[in-house]
Each structure stands twice: as structure tokens, then as C-alpha cells.
């Protein structure tokens, strides 16, 4: 545990844990809405913000946040209004954001795409004390939203139409999810990088649901996985010359694979429990024949 003696490692670990908590916490709502790749899209758009930060000699982190919040809001608006051509519009937004970042950074004085490296893939060990302060505030915001409004966000992400009839401010909540996701992406940018951030939002949730049946348990397990892999990846990169961002993502995928293998017998047992008795008595079979369960979905 000698790594704890170094200030830069303390900061790296704190930043990593906060990302491990916040990325799956907002990611679960994106997965629930079947928008798992939205984090990836925001990451692409944030590139333009990073480029703009370099060009204007302001903080790339705050610029990335401003641009990705705007990008996330545009994506949400496209989802409302552009039903048929929505995916094309989103693709243009994603790749336009990426290309814009590369273009702007090359225009910046003394700028080259080499500057992008740390934003694309993270640079955890260079997190400064002021970075840590920013990350703490942003993480507090994300946790407040994702935990404090969990019932509302659950309802909106589960069934938007029904949520509207319960009187929930559906549009405001959707915009809040988009903004929170954008904030999380820029927070995670320093840890895993813009290109890998979506993995931390999605894969822990996917891994958790191999074991869980409820939303609450999925939330708790996904956050636990997020914390374990971010800490594990950071510590690994202290001992071995490997990049922390990539290590964290590969660890997350390894956890997913292990849990999937473990869960297969569990799922089989549950499926058996669900099909034997206690089911609908109406579908009884003619004696000597296996009960035909009518498929109700086409």
C-alpha cells in the first residue's frame, strides 16, 4: 500500500472512486432508456470543447463541459422532434464534434493533436488539486440528481408516456438526465478519457444486471463494480507501466464476462422456477402433453 504515500496517487484514487460512482449512476438511466451510446456521443461532442479551450487559451475542462452540455441538450431535442431522421442527425453531431475538436486544436497556437491524447484516453496521474475540487463538486451534483430523483428518473426512463400522465415534468427530467450525463462525461474525461467514458457508464450496469432482478439492486451493484474497477485499474497502473484508463475499461469488461459466466446457472434456475407451478392455471395442458405456453408477442 506504499502508493498511498504519494499525493498524486491520493488524488488519482479519489478522482477514480468518484468516477466509479457517478458514471454507472447516470449510465443506468441511459441504459434503461436504451440510449447506452449517448455517453459516447457526448464524449465526441466534448472534443470540440477541448479544442475550443486550447484555441481560446481557457480551461479545456470547463469548455468541454459547456460544449458537451449544449451537445447533450441538442441530442435530447433531436430525440423529441427528429423522429425519422434522428439517427442521421445524431451521427452528424457526433462526428462533427470529433472533427471540430481536431480542427480547432490544430488552429490553436502551438497546438497539435498530440495535446488531445490526455483528453482522449485520460491522464489520471496528472490530476491536480484544483481538478480534484472540481471533480468533487461535479460528482456531488451527479449523485444528488441520480439518487435524489431516482423514482422520478426511473419512471421517466421506464415509460415516458405513462410518466407524463402521472404529472411528472418529463421534458425537464429528460433534459436533466442529458445535462447530468454531459457533466459526468467531462468529469470522467481526466480518468478514462473521452473515448472510453461510455464504457464506464454502460458496462458496470450491464454486468450488474446479470445478477439482479430489481432496479435498486442493479444500481447498487453497478456502482460497486464501478468503484472496484476504477480503484483496481488505478492501483494496477501504479505497479505496471499500463495506462489507467484502458486498464479500468478492460477490467470492467472482465468483470462483465465473469459475472455472465457465473450468472448462467443462476438464470437457468430462475427460469425453471418461473415456468413450474404457481404460474397461470389457465394454460393447463391436455394430459400427456407439455403445457404449451402461448406466445403473446409476435
Amino acid at each position: 500500500m506504499d502508493f498511498l504515500a504519494y499525493d498524486f496517487m491520493q488524488r488519482a484514487l479519489l478522482a477514480a472512486v468518484l468516477i466509479g460512482i457517478t458514471a454507472p449512476a447516470i449510465g443506468i438511466y441511459l441504459v434503461q432508456r436504451r440510449q447506452a451510446l449517448m455517453g459516447d456521443g457526448i464524449g465526441h461532442v466534448a472534443m470540440t470543447g477541448v479544442g475550443l479551450g486550447f484555441l481560446l487559451s481557457t480551461s479545456p475542462v470547463w469548455m468541454a463541459m459547456a460544449v458537451s452540455v449544449v451537445g447533450a441538450l441538442i441530442m435530447e431535442l433531436i430525440r423529441w422532434y427528429g423522429k425519422t431522421r434522428g439517427d442521421i442527425a445524431l451521427a452528424m453531431l457526433f462526428y462533427g464534434g470529433m472533427a471540430g475538436g481536431v480542427m480547432l486544436i490544430s488552429l490553436a497556437p502551438g497546438g497539435s493533436t498530440a495535446n488531445l491524447q490526455s483528453y482522449l484516453f485520460g491522464s489520471l496521474t496528472t490530476v491536480s488539486p484544483s481538478d480534484v475540487t472540481v471533480i468533487c463538486w461535479l460528482a456531488a451534483f451527479v449523485i444528488l440528481v441520480t439518487v435524489g430523483l431516482r423514482r422520478q428518473l426511473f419512471a421517466v426512463s421506464q415509460d415516458e408516456e405513462f410518466a407524463r400522465v402521472t404529472g411528472l415534468p418529463v421534458r425537464a427530467l429528460n433534459l436533466l438526465v442529458a445535462v447530468t450525463a454531459a457533466v459526468t462525461v467531462t468529469v470522467a474525461m481526466r480518468v478514462v478519457g473521452l473515448l472510453l467514458v461510455s464504457a464506464l457508464m454502460v458496462v458496470p450496469v450491464a454486468a450488474a444486471q446479470q445478477l439482479t432482478r430489481s432496479f435498486r439492486a442493479t444500481f447498487v451493484v453497478a456502482v460497486a463494480i464501478g468503484v472496484v474497477v476504477t480503484l483496481g485499474g488505478t492501483v494496477t497502473s501504479y505497479y505496471k507501466p499500463v495506462p489507467p484508463g484502458a486498464t479500468i475499461v478492460l477490467l470492467t469488461i472482465a468483470v462483465f464476462i465473469v459475472l455472465t459466466l457465473l450468472a448462467t446457472p443462476l438464470a437457468r434456475r430462475r427460469a425453471r422456477a418461473a415456468t413450474t407451478p404457481a404460474g397461470d392455471p389457465a394454460e393447463c395442458a391436455i394430459p400427456g402433453q407439455q403445457a404449451p405456453v402461448p406466445s403473446v408477442r409476435g
Binding site: Q152, A155, Q158, L168, Q209, S214, T218
Partner: peptide
């Protein structure tokens, strides 16, 4: 035709969301 979201949810969790209009 399908009411399940992308994340598992229990029957009680789904039904509870109907109570939000009173809570």
C-alpha cells in the same frame, strides 16, 4: 407489447412509479 426497459425492474418498482402522482 413490451414494457420492460433496458434495466431489470421488479413488479413492485414498476407499480410504485404509478404512485408518484400522489407522492
Amino acid at each position: 407489447t413490451t414494457a420492460a426497459g433496458g434495466v431489470p425492474a421488479t413488479v413492485a418498482e414498476v407499480v410504485s412509479s404509478g404512485r408518484l402522482s400522489r407522492a
